[in-house]
């Protein structure tokens, strides 16, 4: 079953009077439950592609369908709902809310989805326990190590059980040991049926994925 389908998707930025292409006619099809690594040098457009797939950015041309829905026609409120329910983001810089505790960070997507306090507290606690952070629930991000912060972020990404997890260089700010732990956690969710798209330029890491898509200058150059 196709989860993510891009047909000739382009994204240009306007810099002054110059049109800077970030994506040029990318076509890509990812099935539900796939584990895909997006590989490419910086400036290759992999982050832009990630943002388009995550509905944080809109293509300037082409068609993008997520779970069978063409997102081009959706208003900002509907896009927000899609990001909330269908996408889970893991960022290189963790992007946790500094004033919220670990469990509150995990519960944030559930709060935005309108879940009650008791329900989200219980699920956040369960997820943090699974991440090995049972004793860190009330810690603020600055009281956690980088690896721990990223594990909180992974728990937050899967809080609403989204079909798609998008990880943008999730190990980029971590030592190799912590990075490996994060990747193993993400792979657990693939095993449970989530689709994982991971941006990386770590060749060793990308080899663990079931499929490697290489980007260069805004185009897919290799997609075996």
């Amino acid at each position: 079953m196709t989860m993510i389908q891009l047909d000739q998707v382009s994204r240009h930025y306007v810099n002054g009077t110059r049109r800077v292409p970030a994506l040029s006619g990318v076509s890509l099809k990812i099935d539900g439950g796939e584990y895909v690594a997006l590989l490419g040098p910086s400036g290759s457009g992999k982050s832009t592609l990630m943002h388009v797939i995550g509905c944080l950015d809109r293509p300037t041309a082409g068609v993008y369908q997520l779970d069978g829905v063409d997102v081009a026609g959706l208003d900002s409120g509907s896009l927000a709902a899609i990001r909330n329910r269908k996408i889970g983001f893991v960022f290189q810089r963790f992007h946790l809310m500094s004033r919220l505790s670990a469990w509150e960070n995990v519960a944030l997507p559930m709060r935005l989805a309108g879940m009650g306090l008791a329900g989200r507290k219980a699920r956040a606690a369960a997820l943090l326990e699974r991440m090995g952070l049972a004793d860190r629930q009330d810690h603020r991000p600055h009281q956690l190590s980088g690896g721990e912060q990223q594990r909180v972020a992974v728990a937050r990404a899967v809080a609403n059980r989204p079909p798609v997890i998008l990880a943008d260089e999730p190990t980029g700010n971590l030592d190799s040991q912590s990075g490996a732990a994060i990747v193993r956690l993400l792979e657990e969710f693939v095993a449970e049926g989530h689709t994982l798209v991971m941006v990386t330029h770590d060749l060793a890491l990308s080899r663990r994925a079931g499929r490697i898509v290489r980007l260069k200058d805004g185009c897919v150059v290799r997609d075996p």
């Binding site: 900002s76 709902a81 899609i82 990001r83 809310m97 944030l108 997507p109 609403n160």
Partner: peptide, 16 residues
């Protein structure tokens, strides 16, 4: 700004 970006990424509506 960054916090608002995070909220938007997690699915907060611009209206909220």
């Amino acid at each position: 700004t960054r916090e608002i970006g995070i909220l938007l990424a997690l699915g907060a509506r611009p209206r909220s």
